[in-house]
Design a protein around this nucleic acid. Sequence first.
DNA 1: ATGAAAGCGCTAACAG
DNA 2: CTGTTAGCGCTTTCAT
Lengths: 339, 339
Amino acid sequence: MQDRKIRIHDVAALAGVSVGSVSRVLNRAANVSAEVREQVERAVAALRYQPSHAARALRSRSSKTIGCLFSDVTNPLYARAFRALEESFRADGYMLLLANGLNDLERERESLRTFALRGMDGVVCAPGNERDPELIGLIDAMSMPVVLYDREMPTARTDAVLFDHVSGVRSACTQLFALGHRRIALALWDADSRPVRRRTEGYRAAYRAAGMEPPALILRQPTATSSVFDDLLRLLNAPDPPSALIAQGTHTLVSALRALAHAGLRVPQDFSVISIGDSDFAQTHVPAISVLRTNAGHVAAQVRCMLLERLNGARAAPPRKVLMPYELEMRASCGPPAR
Amino acid sequence: MQDRKIRIHDVAALAGVSVGSVSRVLNRAANVSAEVREQVERAVAALRYQPSHAARALRSRSSKTIGCLFSDVTNPLYARAFRALEESFRADGYMLLLANGLNDLERERESLRTFALRGMDGVVCAPGNERDPELIGLIDAMSMPVVLYDREMPTARTDAVLFDHVSGVRSACTQLFALGHRRIALALWDADSRPVRRRTEGYRAAYRAAGMEPPALILRQPTATSSVFDDLLRLLNAPDPPSALIAQGTHTLVSALRALAHAGLRVPQDFSVISIGDSDFAQTHVPAISVLRTNAGHVAAQVRCMLLERLNGARAAPPRKVLMPYELEMRASCGPPAR
DNA sequence: ATGAAAGCGCTAACAG
DNA sequence: CTGTTAGCGCTTTCAT
């Protein structure tokens, strides 16, 4: 059985001090004599005292909990983000409530409402839809600080960490240009989301910066789990086929590799591949697949920093948007084009 | 801004009733006249009243929160489990606090302590180590109901949902026997965990039941992400090679497929493959890989049921262990052996 | 620096 | 069936 009946009062009694002093020792640790502190700590240890979280939350108006609203933890991107966030908030005594939005507006609204209701100290969220007015209104109305995770919402006056998709894709293209590639295919999901829009932007920017017209080699999948097999094969059999591919997501990557094998193309001798987003698969594939990836730890540290700053006073400061860089890790899947 | 100042008192005033009545309307909804209820509901709506979760938790001793301790959400198995649990508890107003144990004993202990401290109404956990005495002690000492997720802990007197690894692997073997296979390799991680032990057991049982001696075709990887490439290749080049493989985890599966391709074996014409655990990869691979899988939704429903039953009185009932069946979904990766 | 006392907002026990 | 009241366990003034 848990020692569920030991209250701060008992500790005070055993230590021979007042409950106020015990509370002071437990919390800010200022204005307490060394003597009292020691007595209290001894009593706490002896009784195995554990302060009641609920009482604390009620009185201090802080639940020491961060609400996370992601579309789906089953997506490794968010699973890693969650793990990193948990890690970065752990030392501060925060725990994370996780809710899956599943791209369902009503669900996302409900989760946000629940977060408000439960008095989350902060919220990090990545809604499926960046433009729903009700969702924006809800976020703007949140009384606790919110950080948007790679989302930009029209009028939401909140902080955001944004992945630098433009530079990421641009540098991948530039890298491939340097190897001699001129026709690079880009496979994305067809969602009208910031990441997809920005990646397209980076792709075009790279071509323009290199003095070329962006080619019509962008493949758009309807969902994250649809195959690019047929589409890529068509491109490969058309005149003037691509010699390289930048593919978003493991799923796309796998089906693309299958299409390449089917077409009799070897990686990297005949065709180069870069994946957006790292995975065990990309790492252990033979040849290992080059990837464009963000550092979940860095991103989480940034989120933590923004949230804690707001919590420590800067509630009304203007919203900040921080751009997180992509790293391009070149592995064996890239080489000069065949010829 | 959130309407953070509206208290139950305000609602009572507006509705012209007492706070007690408001509370009754909000909660059990018994012993309230239709008239009062309507007044209260009107007032709640008008004021957009949201009861304070902290106050509720403090007074009613229920946080409406379930703690989940999994080794790593980054593992799709647990990500899916979490999502299913969230779904099954949502309707009851529970939210889930998720902690990653990362197979680190100290971390797991700390998470469990935090769960206790924060007054979780229930806990579902899958510790990395099933035998650590301190962890067992901690779990036994939890004051709220705990459900072990595919773990068996020596003396922990808690409920558990257990996957039926024995029957699962046995049926996979039997299925392969029926196709004509006699030499089936089994690739597992080398963890001394219940799942691994049970799978081995099922494998042996299948052979014995078929009147054969279990062959020395079990491969053990040190970690979940190590490759089986070399080991499988060695087996394939040895005398009397296997004609089928049952592989645990996507990682193992991928490296195994690579080894098969390397050895010039086609799936399923020359070699059959069954994966333990489903994945996008298994589904979209060509040929699609047969899988042994559990239904996360059913499992979650079972967990919910066990937890709620305890919460509704049966606190002291003897611990129950429920075996969850594996489903064998045969896909294109299996066929009769070559010859 | 410390103690006493006043709540935080709600539920539950008890009157009526 | 409804109102009143006493806390849940803690933090935080306010005196001292």
